[in-house]
Amino acid sequence: MKKKLNAYLLAGLIITGLLLLMTLIGAFHTPYDPNAMDSLAKFQHPGGSHIFGTDNFGRDIFSRVLKGSGTTLAIALATVAIGAVFGTLIGALTGYFGGIVDDTLMRLNDALTAFPSILLALLVISLVGPGKYNVVLALGLVFIPSFARVTRTAFAGLRDVNYITSARLMGASNLRILAVHMLPNTMRVLLPAITIGFNNAVLAEASMSFLGIGVTPPDASLGYMLSEAQSMFARAPWYALCTGGVIAALVFGAGLIGEGLQKMDREVA
C-alpha cells in the first residue's frame, strides 16, 4: 500500500515546477521590459543578450514569454479553481442526496458536456466581452460540468459504503460526512481531473486569445503572442517556437503528472 513516486509523476513535477518557478520570477523581474520597443534590436536571433531573440518591434521575447505564461497560468489556475470548487460542490450534493435534482442536473450536464468547451466559452465571451477576467469567468463556467460529473460519481459510489453508513448511524451530520469522510476519498478522481482540467484550460485560453477574443492588449498571454508570432514567422520563427514550446511544455508537464497519478492509483489498487 506504499505510495511510490513514479517516473512520470517525478518528470511532470520537475517540468511543471521549473516553469512555475520561472513564471513566478518573471512576475517580479524580467530581463527587459516586455513591452519596451527597441528599434535598434529588431529581429535579433536567439542567444547573446536576448536568449529567445526579439520580435519586429525589438521587444525581448524571453521577457514577453515570462509575462505571457504568467497570464496564461493565472487564468488556467483560476479557471480550474472555479471549476473544481463549484463542480465538486454540485457533484457532492447531487451525488450524496440523489433524487430529482440529481437527475435533472445530470441530464443538463450531459447536454452541456456534449458541446465543445471552446464553443461554450466563446458564447459566454460574446455576452460579456473579451478581457482576462471574462475569460476566467467563461472558462470557469464551462469547466464546472465536467468536474461535477467526475465527483458526483465518486460521491454516489461512497454513499452506501459501510464506514459512511456507520458514521451516519453515529449521528454525524451530512456536512461532516461529506467534508470529513467523503471528500478525502474523492481525491483520487479529483486530482487527475484537475490536471486534465488545467491542460484544457491552458489550451482553451491560448486558443481564445489566439483568435483575438480572449485576453486583450496590453495584457499578453501565450496564445495572443502566438497569433502575433504567426504573422512574422518567416522573419522570426523563434518567436512562435518559443511561445508554442512553452505552451506545449506546460501541458506536457501537467499531462505527465496526471499520467503518474493514475499509475500510482492503479498500483495502489
Binding site: 486558443s207 489566439f210 506546460l250
Partner: peptide, 25 residues
C-alpha cells in the same frame, strides 16, 4: 513503454494552432 507514454503525452500537449503554424510554414 515509457517512451511511448511520453510521446503520447507530447502529442496531446502540442496545441493544433502551433502545429498549424509550423505545418503551414
Amino acid at each position: 513503454d515509457w517512451i511511448r507514454t511520453a510521446f503520447n503525452q507530447l502529442c496531446m500537449a502540442v496545441p493544433p494552432f502551433f502545429t498549424g503554424i509550423l505545418i503551414s510554414w
